[in-house]
Design a protein around this nucleic acid. Structure first.
Ligand SMILES: [Mn+2]
Ligand SMILES: [Mn+2]
Ligand SMILES: [Zn+2]
Ligand SMILES: [Zn+2]
Lengths: 136, 136
DNA sequence: CGCTTACTGGGAATGATTCTCATGAGCGAT
DNA sequence: ATCGCTCATGAGAATCATTCCCAGTAAGCG
């Protein structure tokens, strides 16, 4: 599943991801690359995004419709376990530590006798920037 | 979006959900109902499951593939905000309170200047029952 | 410079969810 | 109990993200 050779396509997919600070879908990235004049296949975009995620270089979040969105992981958090605070308007995301959550999760699982624990924790809101633009 | 009239189909979809203590997909519920000899359409199953969710009667979780799964909410937690500890093997789920998580989420959002906060928190593991059946 | 093997990409296939719309059934009013 | 309006139903088509297939291409190594 991990695509390892250094190809031109791998580069442009990585660059496209890094160019934004928010989560973007494979379809989005594909459309942007094509619009920018790059010759690349949709399958290839999927392959690399998933490969980045498998390597921990990128994070994945499934949006409300279940569509997978990817984000290039910030330098300081590559590989480390962390979560995100995502602006549901512009897609911008902050990487956050989950200290209290991790402890609560472990304790809760123990209480119910569950093992091999894992968890998904994502925070959504409207960022300071978008707040000014938006009504209500 | 909420289907309100008391129809036979609404009943059997509700019953099918209540009959299991784990999260199940619309496709699963549909297959079961058909196998049990009920005449019902797939669209109708989707309609009712989504309606239950909109009313807070059922919970929804998107599984790893982004497929939506539904679960009839336990009596004591209907309407109240809560989370789940789900067995990734048999689908069984425990309803859990997220006290520490709620506080952490609010504090984190404030720190980054985000408003209109919301969050998804789901715990996954292997339940005590399944642990005995499973290898490794 | 070859060779081997992994990568590419167009198109077809898959599978969940949504849409359309003619038919059927709640239920409030009579 | 009946009528009639409105909403619910369901079969099939449509949508859309993601995966599969596979012949052609290029990376990396000697
Ligand atoms: Mn990250
Ligand atoms: Mn619940
Ligand atoms: Zn924003
Ligand atoms: Zn289990």
């Amino acid at each position: 599943m991990a695509v390892t050779r250094a190809t031109a396509q791998q580069s442009i997919v990585r660059d496209a991801l890094q160019a934004h600070d928010g989560f973007r879908s494979a379809q989005d990235v594909f459309a942007d690359l094509r619009a920018a004049g790059h010759r690349i296949g949709l399958s290839t975009v999927y392959r690399h995004l998933q490969s980045f995620a498998a390597q921990g270089i990128a994070d994945v979040i499934h949006d409300g419709d279940g569509e997978a969105t990817y984000r290039y992981c910030g330098e300081s958090h590559v590989g480390e376990h962390h979560h995100h605070l995502v602006c549901r308007h512009c897609g911008r995301a902050e990487e956050v530590e989950g200290g209290p959550v991790e402890r609560w999760a472990a304790q809760t699982a123990r209480r119910f006798g569950y093992v091999e624990l894992d968890h998904t924790v994502e925070l959504f809101g409207v960022c300071g920037n978008c707040r000014s633009y938006l009504p209500s």
